[in-house]
Amino acid sequence: MSASAIIFYCISTFILLTGILSVTTRKIFRSSIWLLFSLVGIAGLYFWMDMNFIAAVQIIVYVGGIVVLIIFSIFLTQKAGEQMPKAITGRKVFSILSVLAGLAFIYRVISLNEFHPNTTTVVNANVSEIGTQMLSTTEHGFVLPFEAISMLLLAAMIGCIVIAIKSKPE
């Protein structure tokens, strides 16, 4: 086993362990912190794959944005520090069953897929490459989805402003 593989297994164990902890812990704040560590671990996996840009975006969007928002909403709830009630056994059984079903399904899909290790072409993950690809109008360009998402975000922003705007007293 090469050093690279050892690092991969370390990172994967970390992700899985923190992921399991985040769903089994009975304190809601701890759960969000474990989720955060799990997401950081995924970013680490991207770094391991040399996909630096994706890793940085993963950290900015998920860790710096979404998890912080989750933590904020936890802060704003009452009784955030107390332990959650234990889950009912029936629910536990069903959730374990559904997890196992999902696992089996994904395993089946992966085992059916034949992987061809591609050693000749190296994926160019430069920021400039990603930027050109994002705005190119050629066959594999992403300009249409990019613009569509921009429109969506713009609509969301305008919606926020409309909700938050103060109505003038008549």
Binding site: N52, I59, V63, G64, V67, V68, N126, V127
Partner: peptide
Amino acid sequence: NIGVLYVTAISSLSVIGVL
């Protein structure tokens, strides 16, 4: 190769420690 972006990304983690 993403130097500055890396710094921006990681520094957003420091808020977690504070929280």
